[in-house]
Design a protein around this nucleic acid. Structure first.
Lengths: 151, 151
DNA sequence: TTAGGTGCAAATCTTTTGCAGAAAG
DNA sequence: CTTTCTGCAAAAGATTTGCACCTAA
């Protein structure tokens, strides 16, 4: 994990930003919870455990900065809060989301299925894709299993 | 357009809701601006022109109701406001969005490319998709043309 | 040393809600 | 009539900002 932090530190410094203890603590929390989709408030509460003096505004500012640097991705699943996802190392493309409408779980799939579609977009619409986002809403495996039991 | 309003009126009444003048005015605005992705505020300002006494809260309540009825779809492009899109007649599946990162334009494509992917999801992940959402971010045709001129 | 960062509180912005009066079916 | 709606104003949340004081490099 230290390697990843050092790398981000370099990215920060390359743009004239500093790696403060608050920013480092926030990064640690994000790295430790890579699989979750934390809101700013979530991050704040977790960071508070390791750096109690931090303020919510600082968390917002840090997350905004990390979004600019493409270290995290800001997502919105429509529930009124922004969520933040660590972006994988060098992948220009995101994972996609499977959002369960029953239990609310958000899981990820990493396949990159959309390249052929992007090529088609380029040809048919002259649209030059730099990024995409794909979410599926439905019933996840375990909710499906549960509802089959009750039949 | 009247046909569409009548149809929605029936949907409303089937659930015990009333078609008030405010709701009808809101529907007209949505139908007249089918191609745009209006925020609640946008809708409010437009409805005010034809029904000046309407309140913003009523617009929010109407949009919420129409979302429940699947007449509109509530979308979030990450700019802090929800936007509302009229849903096509009977299509379970949405159009997808091409969002230009340069001019901010949002246009739509109607192809339904994702059915094969949904089948794969069902097989590989046992995830039963009921809906999906796909947005591409990139440079649109006209911004592309413009930047080529300056070279 | 100094540009950038922080915490706090206040401000802003979107959306929701309580309520008393209005109106559709 | 009765149940649902409406407008208003207040409330609720999420996020941003101003400011005086810090601190990483």
């Amino acid at each position: 994990m230290q390697a990843q932090i050092d790398k981000i530190k370099q990215q920060l410094q390359a743009q004239g930003y500093k790696l403060t203890p608050q920013r480092e603590a926030t990064l640690r929390i994000l790295l430790e919870n890579e699989e979750d989709h934390l809101s700013a408030e979530d991050v704040f509460l977790l960071v508070k455990e390791i750096a109690p003096e931090i303020g919510l505004a600082t968390v917002y500012r840090t997350l905004e900065l990390l979004t600019e640097l493409h270290v995290v991705e800001k997502l919105n699943f429509g529930d009124g809060v922004a969520r933040y996802d660590l972006r994988g190392d060098s992948n220009r493309h995101h994972h996609h989301h499977l959002i369960c409408v029953q239990c609310g779980d958000v899981s990820e799939i990493k396949d990159d299925w959309l390249l052929p579609l992007e090529e088609r977009l380029q040809e048919q619409y002259k649209f030059e894709t730099v990024d995409h986002r794909l979410d599926f809403h439905g019933i996840c495996k375990s909710c499906r299993a549960m509802s089959e039991q009750t039949i």
